[in-house]
């Protein structure tokens, strides 16, 4: 258990635009190992939803199976959640979002859940541009089944048992960019400053928003030789700090034109990249892939918003769905009635 919920709530906890305090975004007490990176991600999601003043009950949480997929229990207790099947949260999320296009969907998965058993569904989720935020808590191993290497473990990294991984790791962020994702980011569970605004921007994005979060497993993968440990990641971080400015907030700080870049999202909110990494253009797929590759070559983990297409069309638009959520439609809209059936019968004679 890694953090204990305070029983006493300060009467003057700051509240957001909807009048909620951050405590309104709490979930159950975590049962993950103390120090697990996943808990920091839970906390970041909670903070992001609070800061963006999202009504908790209009958010739906979906996950697959794994320590990471347990996370949705530990944030947003007022939201419905669905701990589904190993590797198949993408399909559940797709169905849910088709049923009700008006909710905000947050998917949480692990590297095993996404890059192995769920690889097929993940790629297709990206391709369909389902309107949701998809976070992979990436620890390079299978936490819940006790530390086996996952498919994102880097080539040459050493497992807890001392085995050297001889396989090329899968880079989910590059894959998502290649497959047409409209929002792709990477971050580190220990970097709240970067992670919170990224999650807020992802949730405001119209379409599929992917965040690969390096999230060390303290129990099985946080030792020398692991490339996804706290030490290793901190030492090799190449971070792009950024600000996310929702439509309703003013941009408070001034940024130096030469080192910043602003992108306006569909709802008018702005993402402000404080320091663009040289040669990196957020809306150019090839450039984004190259920058990731270059960083990899130098043994650096590139974090930040890696790619963004602010004008993406989500699945609902693509399928030409009517604006009213499908789950609200009743007999009047759905059932053509006996007269129509009579004419159908006529056509079958």
């Amino acid at each position: 258990m890694s953090y204990v919920k305070p029983k006493f709530r300060h009467p003057r906890l700051p509240s957001n635009r909807l009048g909620f305090t951050v405590a309104d975004y709490d979930g159950a007490i975590s049962t993950l190992c103390a120090g697990c990176g996943h808990d920091s991600i839970s906390a970041a999601i909670r903070t992001a939803c609070f800061e963006s003043s999202l009504p908790p009950h209009r958010i739906a949480k979906v996950s697959g199976i794994g320590c990471s997929s347990k996370m949705p229990t530990y944030f947003l207790g007022k939201s419905h959640g669905f701990n589904s099947v190993h590797g198949r949260m993408p399909s559940v999320a797709t169905g849910a979002s088709l049923a009700n296009r008006d909710l905000t969907y947050v998917g949480v998965s692990g590297d095993g859940d996404t890059a192995s058993i769920g690889m097929g569904q993940f790629v297709h989720l990206v391709r369909r541009n389902v309107n949701m935020t998809y976070i992979v808590a990436n620890n390079g191993c299978y936490g819940l089944t006790k530390g086996q290497d996952s498919a994102t473990a880097d080539l040459g990294s050493v497992s807890k048992y001392g085995d050297v991984n001889g396989f090329e790791g899968i880079d989910l962020a590059s894959l998502a960019i290649l497959q047409g994702a409209s929002f792709v980011a990477r971050s580190f569970s220990g970097d709240k400053e970067q992670l919170v605004p990224l999650i807020r921007a992802a949730m405001a994005h119209n379409g599929f928003a992917f965040i690969d979060v390096v999230s060390p497993c303290v129990t099985f993968n946080n030792h020398n030789g692991s490339t996804k440990s706290y030490e290793e990641t901190r030492a090799h971080l190449d971070a792009m700090p950024l600000d996310f400015v929702p439509m309703r907030e003013e941009i408070k700080a001034q940024y130096d034109e030469g080192t910043s870049k602003s992108v306006t999202l569909h709802d008018g909110s702005v993402i402000h990249l404080k320091k663009a990494v040289s040669g990196h253009e957020t809306d150019d797929r090839q450039a984004a892939l190259n920058t990731i590759q270059d960083a990899n070559k130098q043994n650096r983990v590139l974090t930040g918003l890696l790619f963004l297409d602010p004008n993406s069309q989500n699945l609902n638009t693509n399928l030409e769905l009517a604006t009213r959520p499908l789950n609200e439609l009743g007999k009047d809209e759905l059932c053509p009635g006996s007269k129509v059936l009579k004419s159908i019968n006529e056509g079958l004679r």
């Binding site: 589904s84 198949r88 399909s91 009700n100 499908l326």
Partner: peptide, 21 residues
């Protein structure tokens, strides 16, 4: 939705059913 396989087809139905469609 023409899904990528039957695993996903059923997953989508489950997701939609969970959400009231």
């Amino acid at each position: 939705v023409q899904a990528e396989d039957e695993l996903a087809a059923m997953g989508m139905v489950v997701g939609a059913g969970w959400n009231g469609a």
